[in-house]
Write a protein that binds this DNA or RNA. Structure first.
Lengths: 213, 213
DNA sequence: CTGAATCCGTTGCGATACTG
DNA sequence: CAGTATCGCAACGGATTCAG
């Protein structure tokens, strides 16, 4: 820590010394979705070496950002209250990065947790509050998310369920959320495939989840 | 980039691939205060190796976060509009880290730019708007800042100037801002030394710059 | 089978020296 | 003053092995 600290006394350097190491904030991101087991974290961060994951978990624990908790016979990792206060940081960073996203590279995948946080990032509670409560079932490759919007509140969880609109999409969904692609065009061009429900509900989805440039 | 990317298609991983490298966000932090020359950046980041600074500047430029600009015969680095959009990220990170700060370690220093951003982080525009316009001259070791609060707006610049309250302080100022130390106690205990003006203006300062736990 | 620890090759970082 | 070059080391990446 002596050679790797920033030698400065300020809020940002302090934060960087705690969560500035590679992978640390991505672990926090996934834990913002919910408590996770070691293997679940490894699965959500496909390229993380197992020794690095173990090291980060220890460091984040020592810093009071996460804790190990026994949950019905197995260990899960979860954020402490202080760790949960990183949510605004993750959301701000996610919004900033979202604008720089292009088309996905070959090896880039979408995980349920990363998609969940991207949805939280782009969610507009003020807009949603003016719209009727709606449930969307979204299929991104093999990951299925049930997205429930009710007034200004958002709930995303894995799995399927009753929904007003069910659709499948690849990474092209980003262009819909970014406003680069109109909902109608998204359906016409096959970027989004409506599986059930009225296709024009995709307008509502695009209004609810949107990040202006 | 192939071995060091995160292999995921999401806003946060995209952001981390651009500004996630060591030192990158600290460079952005200092540039949020204003355009800076190479040597000024090096001086503000005392422990950064010069080759790393050069490398980061190139990477940030390539990513469209900063640009080199000629300013009256010399080159300065400045944020692009997109780079400036990192301000909410830096402020959120700074606020989070601020809460974890303890007493400074031996080698930790305070730079004018880092202190300026810490002040911006803890500035409460809503509170300031209810208070009279006030100018503070703050001396932290060898760095002098002129802090002008006028309604909900804050202006911090280096150097001295006419002020309603001039004071000197060491890193103990953090405890004042964190609310751990009352303004009166700060003066009594010598943590803050009033150089000119009415000492009770320090109350106003503590109200204006404050971060609750 | 999950949750790691170990080993080793590679890369990025830290420190210092050097150059236009 | 604004970088570039060099070198040792610590951290990372990948695979394998080990413990509960």
């Amino acid at each position: 820590m002596a050679a790797r600290d920033y030698g400065q006394y300020s809020g940002i350097t302090q934060a960087m010394e705690i969560v500035g190491e590679r992978w640390a904030l991505l672990i926090v991101r996934d834990l913002l979705v919910g408590p996770r087991r070691y293997g679940e974290l490894a699965a959500g961060l496909p390229r993380i070496p197992t020794n690095i994951l173990a090291a980060r978990l220890k460091e984040l624990q020592a810093a009071g950002v996460i804790r190990r908790a026994p949950r019905s016979r197995v260990i899960v990792y979860e954020l402490t209250p202080y760790g949960r206060e990183l949510e605004p940081v993750i959301l701000a960073l996610g919004a900033w990065g979202f604008k720089a996203m292009g088309d996905p590279r070959e090896e880039q995948i979408i995980t349920p947790d990363s998609m969940t946080m991207d949805l939280r990032t782009t969610f507009r509670p003020d807009v949603a509050a003016t719209l009727p409560a709606t449930a969307y079932a979204a299929h991104f490759g093999s990951t299925e998310l049930l997205i429930r919007v009710d007034g200004p509140s958002l709930d995303v969880r894995r799995g399927d369920g009753a929904a007003d609109l069910a659709f499948a999409s690849g990474p092209g969904i980003r262009r819909l959320i970014a406003g680069e692609l109109a909902p109608d065009r998204a359906i016409e061009s096959g970027v989004v495939q409506v599986l059930s429900g009225q296709g024009n509900l995709l307008h509502r989805f695009a209004d609810t989840f949107h990040l202006a440039a």
